[in-house]
Design a binder for these strands. Structure first.
Length: 304
DNA sequence: AATGAAAACAACCGCCAGCTA
DNA sequence: CTAGCTGGCGGTTGTTTTCAT
């Protein structure tokens, strides 16, 4: 009956993740994908519950995450979508492909709430979006969803053959997708190297991933590009960190990518092992309006 | 330079829907 | 059909960092 319990509560570690744990988790997911979170603690030896592993991955380690410094456009987008959708952060996050729901939620709670409050104090209802009734938004959204579905089916029929899983064919935005994640990890690894000159190589139950990786040399000056001095057994891991970070796109550029780019982003694959890093935290495109369309009608409103 | 307050962020908790044995 | 687990989501809390005095 049912499934076996995901993890026993005894001996489960809590609190901030260490770089070592991150490496183990990333390494494991690189190899096995994100299909079964329940097996992650068991197979990696991480003393974390599956839920914690999933959260760490989706909110911090997952490729494609952009952190900090919300652009003005993103900010407006969040404000608009929050007005429309309420506190449905996952839904809002689906329109901001590089942001996690947690990040957006935090940003809303710490920045935007206050900002809006301030604005309302100054001139009553300050923001133009608030003059648009919810009903109007919903009607327009529904129209755009229809348009999006049409665009999606067009994109699928036209672009499908050109999709490539080879990293060489990745567009700059995709490179950036990986690079931004590599930045995250390189940053924390950098700190780790500073604070722990003799990294713990882990208990017996751990995979040798952490050990192997720490033997490599990480260059913080490379903006997240790890040197490939790790052992051949971790080629996939190397590749994960070695994507070119040179051509960072602004969110404006990214948001103007077509539906087909979004579809490509949803099926990234590492060249060496073929493991697909699906953007699993995002809902299917069938359920969402592509960013460009949302943006279009926001632009139509003269809000940007 | 020291200290307290505020802000920012990461992670946990609890609930729920869907899935599986 | 059903009990119970998983994964996802939103709310909340705890910790760290930054800023003001």
């Amino acid at each position: 009956m049912g499934r076996p319990p995901c993890c026993d509560k005894i001996g489960v570690k809590k609190g901030p993740w260490t770089p070592e744990e991150d490496i183990i988790l990333v390494s494991y997911i690189q190899e096995h994908g994100t299909g079964n979170w329940r097996s992650v603690p068991t197979n990696t030896g991480l003393l974390r519950c599956s839920k914690s592993c999933r959260l760490r991955w989706t909110n911090y380690l997952r490729p494609g995450i952009k952190r900090g410094n919300f652009t003005e456009q993103e900010e407006k987008m969040i404000i608009h979508l929050q007005a429309l959708l309420g506190n449905r952060w996952a839904a809002i996050a689906s329109y901001l492909p590089q942001r996690t729901d947690n990040d957006i939620k935090n940003y809303w709670n710490t920045h935007l709430k206050k900002k809006l409050k301030k604005g309302q104090k100054q001139d009553g209802v300050s923001s133009s979006f608030q003059s648009v009734t919810k009903g109007q938004w919903e009607r327009r959204l529904q129209t755009d969803i229809r348009m999006a579905k049409q665009a999606l089916s067009d994109a699928l029929s036209l672009d499908k053959p050109s999709f490539s899983t080879d990293s060489k064919d990745l567009k700059p935005s995709q490179e950036n997708t990986y690079a931004s994640s590599a930045e995250n990890i390189s940053r924390l690894l950098e700190n780790w190297m500073k604070t722990s000159p003799e990294p713990v190589t882990g208990a017996d139950h751990r995979t040798n991933s952490a050990e192997t990786v720490t033997q490599g040399s990480f260059s913080s000056s490379d903006e997240g590009a790890f040197s490939a001095e790790t052992t051949p057994t971790h080629q996939g891991f190397d590749s994960f960190f070695s994507f070119n970070n040179g051509s960072c796109k602004s969110s404006d550029d990214v948001s103007r990518e077509s539906v087909s780019v979004e579809l490509q982003n949803a099926s990234l694959m590492t060249p060496e092992n073929g493991v697909v890093f699906q953007d699993e935290s995002k809902p299917d495109l069938g359920d969402q309006v592509p960013l460009t369309l949302i943006e279009k009608w926001l632009l139509d409103d003269g809000l940007f």
